[in-house]
Design a binder for these strands. Sequence first.
RNA 1: GCGCCCUUCGUCUAGCGGUCAGGACGCCGCCCUCUCACGGCGGUAACACGGGUUCGAUUCCCGUAGGGCGCACCA
Length: 474
Amino acid sequence: MSKSVVTRFAPSPTGFLHIGGARTALFNWVFAQKMGGKMLLRIEDTDRERSTDAAVTAILDGMTWLGLTWDGEPISQFARADRHAEIAHELLAQGKAYKCYSTPEELTEMRERARAEGRPPRYDGRWRDRDPSEALAGLKPVIRIKAPQSGEIVVKDHVQGDVVFRAENLDDFIILRSDGTPTYMHAVVVDDHDMGVTHIIRGDDHLTNAARQIVIYQAMGWDVPEMAHIPLIHGSDGAKLSKRHGAIGIEAYRQMGYLPEALRNYLARLGWAHGDDEIFSTDQMVDWFSLEALNKGASRFDFVKLDNLNGHYIRSADPARLYDVMVETASETGRNSDYAGLVANKQTILSAIPELQPRAKTVLELIDLAQFIYAARPLPMDEKAALLLDADAAAHLSKLVDIFEALNDWTVEALDGAVRSYAESVELKLGKIAQPLRAALTGRTISPGIFEVMTLIGREESLGRIRDVVAPNR
RNA sequence: GCGCCCUUCGUCUAGCGGUCAGGACGCCGCCCUCUCACGGCGGUAACACGGGUUCGAUUCCCGUAGGGCGCACCA
């Protein structure tokens, strides 16, 4: 019986949860679910300059919205600094690490000279075997680990396969800074070990770091966790995502009207596949997932495809839930008049949503499509709608007002029948009558079925809107 | 510069020596139809290049080109 799986998601709180981080979190979560294990959350906040509480909140909120749960309390890496230092000193005591008294200026010069001579910019190990007594008085040392000087380090990766690094390419890197704080490379290893992490799933920008981290694991005699370095996500133009290039926070996707299940499905298909399956539930994702099925190549983020998937999930969503999401989204994005209209017309909106669902790809579009319900008379006409309402159209609409007033039932069937027979009586195709009617009733040329619109807004409102365009001054 | 990783339709991908190279999104056409969607049907489009290995390479190996990541007392 192998020990149960523990994964972790370890964001640094220097900004929002971006799309790449969200996918990393998703894969960690899905894998833990599948294996019946746990996913822990560790906030890598050792960079005190750039870490903020607001970012931590944004990340946790983003994960919660996406439906990614973690086990236990989030762990602060910064809070564990003493433990990191303890291990660094243990390594020192064992002679597997040493104090280095090189100054930053000295290191800069070392790198520049190496670069000038065409050598890799690495620390040359000058303090590896030097006696501390040779150091300048008052200088605070850093602690460097003794990396192997020959042989190779193999990262056994579930995605990338065995990746071999020659020891010559690894230098004696710093594990504890001169102020006694740990470096990222060191803190990660100590934390992953202490947290009992069995599987490290992270972006492949960490692949070369993995070799360095293995040096620490080996020095401590610790088991190296299983690793899976997943490919990165690029922007739609193939360029790396950056702050000014599409790397927006997960909350921005919510504000753009995407549903979390759509995003989960989309993200899962970026770099991972289960045969030809495109649309699948989160349960299926968990059921089908395997690290070996992850791709190695980076993929591009494609909003068009996300839109398509989101449309699918909007179509299959429960109207009551969609209503809530519409209200939240309107509120959150400052669409105040929409918010007021949605809240004031809850019942009508609720019954209209099934008509709206097949027509929207995002919640924002859903809101837009619902506007005809709460638009105030006289309705604003968009350009195409205004063009439809010429004198001919007004004449027909005027007749229709009479017909509608005489109608006993205000139902889709009754209205449909009435308008059809009118169109027949004047020898016009239904569309010739329906389009001006649509313009008058919605102010637009596109809308749900026009008879559905009429039943939704009701007889009085319908007649009022038609009269507004037939006799604007009355 | 050094190290490592990657490369199938425009995009996401299936493929794991022998396939008419499959699916999805997009796009185009047709159908449905009161508009727009939805839905249905059909179509367009790819193995980066050059060498090997093999009876046979999209698939295995080596180069080339292109892309990415890393090389801090950042994470």
